[in-house]
Amino acid sequence: MADINPLAPAMPLAIDPEIGGPPTAPIGGVPPRAGRPAVRFGRLGPTLVLILCAIFFIAPLLTLARYALQNVPTIRLGASTMFDKWSLSGLTKAFSDKQFGPTLRLSLKLALGTVTLTLALLLPTAIWVHMRLPRMRAVIEFVTVLPYVIPAIALVAGIVVVKPHARWFLDSDYSLVPFYVILALPFTYRSIDAGLRSIDLKTLVDASRSLGAGWGTTLRRALVPNLRTAIISSAFLTTAVVLGEFTIASTLLKNTLPTFQATYVKREPQGGYGLNLLALVATTGLFALLTVATRKRGSRKVKSALTDPAMAETMAFAGITRSQQGR
């Protein structure tokens, strides 16, 4: 009698690891046999994949850091010289190069111009389409992937054709801005579209308008604060893309930071590797900043643009843009 546990009836209710509660459907048949190799392998496989991927993704960064920061020829590299001569001298040399300042400034200006033009063009268009032309959404969505159909290297071929007819425009360094807006379109539009889909646009606009606000005030005080995440994400992603754009800038012979990076490596390998390492660190920093800037407070589950499933496609598309023009 004493060995009848009062809790016993609760025990057979197996907790399903997939959903963290009792099974939604009774599981018939044979229960999984403990110690079956497949069970252990099932855990081993994913862990192995994770570890191998981690090594693959970190190794090139470490070796780049070594070349950038350690002044030991490869031939003499070994266990004994592993920690010799690490310094920032390559980097400081690159910073003091007289081309570094101007190219960095130009790239920053291009990034600022691209972000501004993108928002000025896309925010009103996307809001308008959501409010008045919902049937156009599919069309616009398709149109915004056209920059993948016409990749940067093909686009620049077209620019070269047009160039003799529009020298007054294309000779200026800032003529890159509209093309960068185009290249960024797939992910900037997706980011803003996802933002608009997550809010009740019509109610917000109606409420704001009925309180006597004009369109400008509505946009500034009702919509932009609600689209914060979308706007910040597209701004950061665009900045990252512009600061790395190489294809168009190098073909049109513009002296932006990436073209300087490419030529400087040939002159000063160590400093050049240093600059490239810095570019990687800066991009990562930009994304860390993006995570902090878009972190949603209040909700218990911390969500940011980087881990938000609704943003996954935006991030993927940004990556594709990078590889077409930046890589």
Binding site: V241, G244, P258, L277, L280, T283, M315, G326
Partner: peptide
């Protein structure tokens, strides 16, 4: 989104 030139150099 990493990379561009830096990835190639890495």
């Amino acid at each position: 989104n990493l990379g561009g030139l830096p990835l190639a150099f890495a």
